[in-house]
């Protein structure tokens, strides 16, 4: 090991954070850029399935809540893009990678939101799963990423609680409403579990990421946490658990559960989910349609600069 590498590894071992100007292995930098940009893209693309329901939410209160939540996600995207930029990649490079399919985002957002209950299920389960992951990432070794996660975690709790509250209203409502809640649970439960990624044995980046403390807990451990915490929540809703094999295992102190449909997982990642194409098309369209605003800002500023120079002269 070179002295630089030694110094870097010493910081990692002592739980000291790595900061932007520190020396770091090229692979560490690449790994972080991949993970943080993917995380940022997920926040941004994640606005689409819920944004789809803002105008159709069943009351003014629910509209306001959903609007706030989606606005938070835009903010999360910003925090993460900023953290990623400290690694030497520009915002526009990242956006280009997203739009050309070179960078990924969480597969969960390629599932459609068919009913209002889906919005509740997303807040409860999808944000719930994201929280489990993000709480763990507060201890990640890269300083700007860690600080971003701490900030995001403070905001996420509201996301999950408003989703659960919406599910609760449906689950305690008419038989039709309850059926709608059950259907949303059945559809979103499995993809939510897939959000934690493949089994650790199949995960291409896991080992190095754990060594460098970019990731602090394995995919399977985090998934287990989520499985465990969700059982009681389903019970309180009075809904049926989608996994018929869910069973408390006294010895492990955890719930045993069915394995996931990994063919579906890999197929959605490969671009064959319900909404993959639509999500990116929408992102490109929104970006293009916003061009005149960006141009106007630049033109306005140029005008101000000229005026200022004239006044000074």
């Amino acid at each position: 090991m070179t002295p630089e590498e030694q110094n870097f590894m010493r910081k990692i071992e002592n739980e000291e954070k790595i900061e932007p100007k520190d020396w770091m292995p090229e692979e560490y930098r690449k790994n972080l850029i991949r993970q943080i940009s993917q995380h940022a893209h997920s926040e941004v693309i994640g606005m689409q399935p819920e944004g789809n329901w803002i105008t159709r939410a069943p009351s003014l209160r629910r509209k306001a809540v959903l609007l706030s939540k989606v606005q938070d996600e835009a903010g999360h995207g910003l925090y993460l893009y900023s953290a990623c930029e400290t690694l030497g990649i520009s915002r526009s490079e990242m956006i280009e990678q997203l739009q050309t399919g070179k960078a990924k985002y969480s597969s969960i957002f390629n599932y459609p939101t068919l009913t209002w209950a889906d919005v509740g299920a997303i807040g409860w389960l999808v944000d719930g799963a994201a929280i489990v992951n993000q709480v763990s990432l507060q201890r990640t070794s890269y300083g700007p990423y860690s600080r971003g996660m701490i900030r995001i975690c403070k905001e996420e709790s509201f996301h999950q609680r408003q989703g659960y509250e919406a599910m609760l209203a449906l689950a305690k409502g008419s038989p039709d409403q309850k059926a709608m809640a059950q259907d949303a649970l059945n559809r979103f439960y499995w993809p939510a579990l897939m959000m934690f990624g493949p089994h650790d044995s199949e995960s291409a980046h896991s080992q190095k990421s754990m060594e460098w403390k970019i990731k602090r807990e394995t995919n399977d451990d985090l998934r287990q946490k989520f499985v465990d915490q969700t059982v009681k929540q389903i019970e309180v809703l009075g809904l049926e658990h989608p996994d018929k094999n869910i069973k408390w295992n006294e010895e492990r102190g955890h719930y045993d559960s069915s394995d996931l449909n990994w063919d579906e997982f890999w197929s959605v990642i490969a671009g064959n989910g319900h909404c993959n194409r639509q999500r990116i098309e929408h992102h490109v369209a929104a970006h293009d349609e916003g061009e005149w605003v960006r141009d106007a800002i630049t033109a306005y500023n140029e005008k101000k600069r000229v005026k200022k120079a004239q006044n000074a002269a």
Partner: peptide, 8 residues
Amino acid sequence: MTKVTEKL
């Protein structure tokens, strides 16, 4: 693609 964020 315009790279406005780079100019900002």
